[in-house]
Computed example of a mutant assay.
Amino acid sequence: MYTEFFGLSAKPFDLLPNPKFLYLSKGHRKALSYLQYGVQEHAGFTLLTGEVGSGKTTLLRDIINKISHDTTLAMIFNTRVESQQLIAMINEDFGLQVDGKNKAQLLSDLNDFLLKECSEGRQPIIIVDEAQNLSEDGLEEIRLLSNLEADSFKLVQIILVGQPELKQLIAKPSLRQLRQRISISCHLNPLNREETEEYIFHRLATVGNRNCVTFLDGVIDRIYRFSGGVPRLINLICDFLLLSAFVEESREIDLELVNDAVSELSFEDASLLSGDFEKEAQPHQRLQNASSTDERLARIEENYAKLNATRSEQEAILERLSSQGSILEYLINQQQSQFGRIEEQLKKTAAQIDRLRAAVLSDGKRSVQQEPLHFDEVLKKNC
């Protein structure tokens, strides 16, 4: 909607985890290196954790895009399942038949498949996203999959991805065997103030114009304070700010616009977000005091969706009004054109009347007053 106004090829702050927009902060670069190393070295278990909206899925998709063609991949996103359902989902994602098979048959099929893949020079990888939702039984089932091995190497590599609660879950004494199998572990922290600014301009530059809008003094600070450096929250507020600037036909974003956006997105008093920006820990403390990060994010995303729906309705009304205005303008132009033609015709008629009068008077045989009927007939004939 606003991309043409700002000269952009696409929305820079879309919420979809598109690896094209991947911004490598210090933490993201480190995590990416660890994941790449784990894939290249066929590490048994790799653990990636981070807060909601920190960029875990975007990082994963970047890794997937760069995985070589000799890799076979199974990705599991629905983790609120029983252990047998989990195995069935893995087999199904690998393209195996699962209907009517019990757990033992599923595991046997999976083992045969992994052996076949490795014998043909392919590397099987299982990625489990949102792994914090797995039960202890589910995590233990994942651990047992790592026991599927040939004489000198593991048959499958497993990457567990989840929120910080996943690390707490794995820390339980009952899962110590799983914990001991994890060879690579990395955590994504929120961006700091400088990284937040770089992130915003990086996404603008990715779609064509990092200078399409001017952020006035204090605006980036306010965005950082609101988002706590969480990329998804940064995307939410920046998308809303660009939309608001577009509506106002402005290429500048000031503090008033940010305060309005914060109030609409979070239903919080924007004045609460003013203050000292020097302490980087302070945004995280405020986020935790208000509610947990995931609850806050869910609430803000819900408000964002509602506001987007309202904006879409307003846009549709404006488009209809614009269309009606174009039709009205066309009709007015048509009327003016018709009036112009009528005016020309009247001028021609007046000229003809003047010529007739001059001819009658110069003849001297009749007057217009004596023979009005004859004059009217002549006038009618000539008009």
Results as ranks from 00 to 15, higher is better:
R366K: 08
R232I: 01
E82C: 12
A43N: 13
G100F: 00
I332N: 15
E313M: 12
A205M: 05
Q36F: 09
L255E: 09
A358D: 14
G340D: 08
F113M: 14
V378P: 15
Q132H: 10
E319T: 01
E120T: 10
H28A: 00
K167G: 05
Q288K: 12
H28I: 00
E319R: 00
E198W: 07
G95Y: 03
D276V: 07
S323R: 00
L361S: 08
T71M: 03
E197R: 12
D276G: 09
S152K: 14
Q335A: 11
N303W: 04
V219G: 07
P173H: 13
I142G: 09
D14W: 04
R296P: 14
L145V: 10
S83W: 01
L242I: 09
Q168D: 08
V98Y: 07
F339I: 14
S135N: 03
F215I: 08
I332V: 14
D112R: 04
L73N: 07
S367N: 05
C212G: 06
N189T: 08
R355P: 13
E344R: 07
K66E: 07
D137V: 03
G38M: 04
F267D: 15
E195Y: 05
V360T: 01
V213M: 02
R225P: 02
L155P: 12
L110N: 06
D221H: 04
L8S: 07
G50V: 01
T293L: 15
E82K: 15
Q85L: 09
Q282W: 10
A305T: 10
K365L: 11
D260V: 03
E41I: 00
I317R: 10
E343A: 12
A281H: 11
R181M: 07
Q369N: 13
G275W: 03
I253F: 01
N91C: 15
V81I: 06
L188C: 09
L175K: 03
L144K: 03
A351P: 05
E302L: 12
L265C: 06
E194A: 11
L160W: 06
S119N: 12
I142S: 06
T214Y: 05
V378F: 14
A131H: 02
S185V: 06
S108M: 11
Q338F: 11
C118G: 11
I63W: 01
L318M: 13
S274Q: 11
I237C: 00
H202Q: 02
V156N: 01
L191V: 01
L86N: 07
R366P: 05
Y304P: 12
D217M: 00
R143S: 09
S322D: 15
E82A: 15
L32M: 02
V247L: 15
I125A: 06
A171M: 09
L145P: 13
L73V: 05
Y224K: 05
V247T: 13
N259L: 10
S152D: 15
L106E: 05
F13E: 07
L297I: 08
E252N: 12
M75K: 14
V213C: 08
E315F: 12
F277V: 15
S367Y: 09
F339Q: 13
T58R: 01
A350Q: 11
K20Q: 15
S183C: 02
V230M: 04
A351T: 05
I158Y: 04
